[in-house]
């Protein structure tokens, strides 16, 4: 990796500068030129040393913040956003790979995790093992997982699941025209919802999640206890 450039400014002040004339370069070149003029006048070079020291300290601080940002790079995450007030989850009836029908209203009284996904979506693939782990852990406790695939056909998805390290045992349903994801206002994949026992949208997560995280389990147990 190599640092390219950094610019921080508000919309109103943003000006495009070619890389050869970045603000930092202009600033430091001007400062250096000013110090050289003092040398020409016979003034000692302590000012130059002070300037260099302060510049080094500044760059060290900035470099430290970059290293820190790298080391704190988040993974899938585990947070869900509460949806208030809880609205009724749009009902649907979809088929799985074997043509068996699943209707959301049949899950009334259970907490349901609906995961909108597709095989071509890398984070969908990444979160699948954790989703299976969660389902295995809580699947017997009035908790269900419905993975709603977007646009793809059962043959393609069946082949895909065979490539996974962990074969999903929860229902994979097919939303071939993306009508259901539209009803849920899904803009990007993956997006997941937690439905409470009354069939209401309780939480949403946009982007991949580590469903096997203790905080996710805690959230679901709280919904189960409601």
């Amino acid at each position: 990796m190599r640092p390219l450039n950094r610019l921080t400014m508000t919309r109103d002040s943003l000006i495009y500068l070619p890389s050869r004339r970045r603000p930092g370069s202009i600033f430091f070149n001007a400062m250096d030129a000013g110090l050289r003029r003092h040398d020409d006048n016979g003034v000692n070079d302590r000012l130059r040393k002070l300037g260099v020291l302060l510049m080094v300290m500044s760059f060290a601080l900035l470099a430290g913040s970059i290293v820190s940002a790298d080391s704190d790079a988040p993974g899938l995450g585990y947070q869900f956003t509460p949806l208030e007030p809880r609205a009724a989850a749009p009902d649907f009836t979809l088929s799985d790979m074997d043509g068996e029908s699943y209707a959301l209203h049949d899950y009334h009284g259970k907490v349901v995790l609906i995961n909108f996904w597709a095989t071509w979506c890398p984070p969908c693939r990444k979160e699948m093992p954790a989703l299976e782990a969660l389902y295995k852990k809580l699947g017997d406790e009035s908790f269900a997982v419905l993975a709603v695939n977007q646009w793809e056909d059962p043959d393609h998805v069946f082949a895909y699941t065979g490539e996974l390290n962990v074969f999903p045992t929860f229902p994979i349903l097919f939303d071939p025209e993306s009508a259901i994801s539209e009803d849920y206002g899904v803009k990007g994949l993956p997006t997941s919802f937690l439905i409470d026992k009354k069939g209401r949208l309780a939480y949403r997560a946009v982007g991949g999640r580590d469903f096997d995280h203790a905080e996710v389990e805690k959230l679901i147990r709280e919904l189960l206890a409601e």
Partner: peptide, 28 residues
């Protein structure tokens, strides 16, 4: 005057920019 300007500008870089967040771009 130049020393004061120099120290002020460096202090601005050192103290103010981190507070508003610096975007670090890396190519990989």
């Amino acid at each position: 005057a130049r020393v004061v300007l120099l120290v002020s500008l460096v202090a601005a870089v050192w103290l103010v920019l981190p507070a508003v967040g610096i975007s670090a771009v890396t190519e990989h």
